[in-house]
Nucleic acid binder design. Structure first.
Lengths: 259, 259
DNA sequence: ACCTATTTGTGCGTATGTATT
DNA sequence: CAATACATACGCACAAATAGG
């Protein structure tokens, strides 16, 4: 399992396009940080049980100095994942489980949260009237340039930020959607007030990437946190798209469930 | 959009448990790398169109020196995302799209790939006979300690590594599953040889995290790459669990699609 | 009580990498 | 390109707590 850790050595040994010579460069991530990241993911996967191997052993396995391992452990201790005890060893502090977020044809954020006894909340970060660009017009099946309400939200459960989302609605079909959401705090309810009693999720696409700087600030997470990005289309009972929504979930706080 | 980038400043100003003082420490990620990461994600989200703002403007916006921005741009150029042209500006080189990976009740890896004209392949990384632990016995509805075949695979499309996966099967019900997979290179076919003509996906749970060191080596990706982790249960027509599979997709090479 | 091996905690000197001026 | 300040990584040595014989 721990046989080798060659990945700590620089992988970028050659430069391709000749403009800049990368051969002597690192990749911008320090060794202690890589050790910390790897330990974190091993702990998350249950690959390291309750007691962490001694610093000297880890140092040998990762091919780094013991100080470097110590700094990685210190960082993880600061995150609350590890607890080092002098003379005894270093122990794993089991993380609170991720919030389970079921996604189906009729999943609603608020209902999910209350089902897990979490208090849901959301606040409007920004809203604007914008023209449809290529990508969004294709998803919403509207003309390029058609007027859309863009709604930027921050979703919170039990006072902990969970996700940032950006939604687009047809401004012609739902002229007052922003006001309705501002009053009710619920997309489902805002759509109902606009005359749409039911809708369903047609498609959900999932990717993951690093958080952007302004999302990081709003989500109050580390600047290099990982987000699960969901791009989804909701449709009315006739199959007409009514919402395109891009949600950025904090990956270490949620787990998406399908099926 | 670019109003502030406070996140570049260290957020870790206080230490909680008193063992180590973090106040003078960096967070292990260099500034040029953070600028590069943020630019990359903005480009991916379409937030930066075709032409990148001038270096001096970026330096001011990120609150860093122009040298630092130049290094970030050089790094992205090396990745093939940007192309700087003297006297003209810096331009975005649109990335090849992520491979779309539909997940449904009857999704099969090979079929997905050929549908996108990619040549699928897989190789066995490791296999072993292991006892079921708590987590897996719950998913497979078997006794703790029951004998399971554990199969570690690497999936490849057009010679590019796409995912690493670990599957567990009941060794009692599918005694020859490993050999069958080794011969056919297909889970579907291997199960058919074991007498199971049909199965379906019952549940898929998605999270994201940093790649572990040994996965990074096999996937030949950066040591700090992001992976989409899918934990799923497949069941036979009677609803009996037959496979628990944990797949680690490289997040920048795939997009998962549900519904 | 003693000794020993193991493990974490600490200090210091040096070299290299990073970021700014 | 040079000078500067700071962060990172290493090597060595030793102190302090723990556990077992």
């Amino acid at each position: 399992m721990f046989d080798s850790y060659l990945a700590l050595r620089d992988t970028r040994m050659t430069s391709r396009n000749g403009t800049v010579d990368f051969s002597s460069w690192g990749d911008g991530v320090s060794r202690w940080r890589r050790v910390a990241d790897d330990l974190r993911s091993r702990i998350a996967e249950g690959d390291i049980s309750e007691i962490v191997p001694p610093e000297t052993v880890l140092a040998a396995r990762y091919g780094v100095n013991r100080h470097t391992v110590r700094r990685a452990i210190a960082s993880l201790s600061d995150e609350g994942i590890l607890k080092a005890e002098r003379g005894k060893g270093t122990f794993v502090h089991r993380r609170p489980r991720r919030v389970l977020y079921p996604i189906g044809a009729r999943t609603r954020f608020s209902e999910n949260m209350v089902r897990q006894s979490l208090e849901p909340a959301g606040r409007i970060v920004r809203s604007a009237l914008v023209p449809a660009d290529d990508a969004i017009s294709a998803r919403l099946k509207c003309a390029v340039g058609a007027p859309l309400h863009r709604l930027d939200r921050l979703s919170v459960a039990d006072r902990v930020p969970m996700s940032r989302s950006t939604s687009w609605f047809s401004a012609e079909r739902f002229p007052d959607i922003i006001e309705a959401y501002a009053e009710t705090g619920s997309i489902t309810e805002a759509l109902r007030r606009s005359g749409l009693s039911d809708y369903r999720r047609a498609e959900t696409r999932i990717t993951a990437e690093r958080v952007s700087a302004d999302d990081a600030e709003l989500l109050s997470c580390a600047p290099d946190a990982i987000i699960l990005t969901s791009r989804a289309v909701d449709v009315d009972p006739e199959g007409q798209p009514i919402q395109f929504v891009c949600t950025r979930f904090l990956a270490d706080r949620v787990e998406l469930m399908f099926g």
